[in-house]
Nucleic acid binder design. Sequence first.
DNA 1: GCGACCGTTCGGTCCGCACCGAAGGGTGCC
DNA 2: GGCACCCTTCGGTGCGGACCGAACGGTCGC
Lengths: 249, 249
Amino acid sequence: MSPSSGSAAVSSGIVAHAPPGLRLAHFASLLADETRAVFLLSLLDGRAWTASELARQAGVAASTASEHLSRLTAAGLLAEERQGRHRYVRLADAAAARLVESVAAYALPGRDNPHTLRAAGASSAMARGRTCYDHFAGRLGIAVTDAMERRGLLLMGSGFALTEEGLDWFGGLGIHLLPAKSRRPMVSSCLDWTERKRHLAGIAGAELCWLALEKQWCVRIGSERAVKVTAAGERALYALLGIEADELR
Amino acid sequence: MSPSSGSAAVSSGIVAHAPPGLRLAHFASLLADETRAVFLLSLLDGRAWTASELARQAGVAASTASEHLSRLTAAGLLAEERQGRHRYVRLADAAAARLVESVAAYALPGRDNPHTLRAAGASSAMARGRTCYDHFAGRLGIAVTDAMERRGLLLMGSGFALTEEGLDWFGGLGIHLLPAKSRRPMVSSCLDWTERKRHLAGIAGAELCWLALEKQWCVRIGSERAVKVTAAGERALYALLGIEADELR
DNA sequence: GCGACCGTTCGGTCCGCACCGAAGGGTGCC
DNA sequence: GGCACCCTTCGGTGCGGACCGAACGGTCGC
């Protein structure tokens, strides 16, 4: 995908025809600051935050946060919506989220360690289920992905792709996945940096997540990215994928 | 982030339990310098370069290059082998290569533009076929990948995975792909930043590349990463995948 | 209207770090 | 042994950029 061509890059100070090394370095420097990194990690839930929320999160002055947000937006990593006196920002698109995820997955230590899984025990709800930009992660994401593989809907051993049956399964939910509908892959895997296990992402993952929220199979908990499976959700997951409620706890 | 408790930094750069934002930023800062970026892009061919070659490539003094290489090595991105008075460095592993590729794919403009494909027309050989760390890229990589899809060996529309037939096909070549043999995915796709098209990577891609070089289906051209398909290679590609020689030119 | 709040802009400060040249150790060649 | 070569270490310099506080303009609520 890349920034929609030069325009964003130009406004951020880089010439379109700069040598590749310089372009790569300039771009990487966007992530190479703790404050901006905290912003991006916070935004990985795919939702919009206000400038002051992010400033508090990172522990910097509002003026500092403002400058950082302008830079990230100019580079095309963030999209913003102004509402009244608030500036809401979110990750620009799935490609931006994917990029942050992939760098984080490499840079951050594997937290397989059960007792440090999300250091503050407060967020065991996060371990159970959460959104990862626009699809499910946590045990919920893993359970769905694994169940799809068990049922022959998804190939995972030799790559990561939906089978014919998998496409039909989505069709049965009213989700019709068209190949090459956009530049974004229809199906891809996401290696979450807390779970260290691949789970369903891409358009298919996003559509499934959206459907589950719409049908109230899951609801968001508070203002966090954590989600909770409802009773109706447990029934649906069992009927559709044979997932036992125990698996999700 | 200003003071950032300077004591946090150790020789390798950062303590293990630093907050995620700081770790991510420290890591990204490795790519956030033009000289280091040039090094990494040069090393994307998967081969080993000497320190002075890289210094010349980037246009910096040997002392400067030495410091950069030490940093990249300490961080685990590069591996080094000392031979006599030479210091050879290469990308540490496929994960490191993948990381650089994914950031580059986002940061660098799409060079779909036919006439700027590898700016210096000198390297049309590169466009025909080359190695991308440890697997094939260029038209050769695309041709192999597409042919595998046409033959039902590879699913690409709904993800990216080998089918049963695909696994058998590899078995017929004497390549036995075992699931979960390592942390590296058996099959994955690589989006090359010059071609902008997915092609076969992962263990399967690497094994296939290695086999082709061993059987002299392809040979390296000069000291570049470009490869050339031999006459024996054309026969083999036709017999195995039905690839016409025209496709490769 | 006035005050509370959110965000931005502007000086000014300060630290990190990329860079070089010079000097020094290790290796290989003749 | 002597010399050329590859690399490293060490001071010193200069620039980019992250940060803050203060001042200002917009937006909402009372």
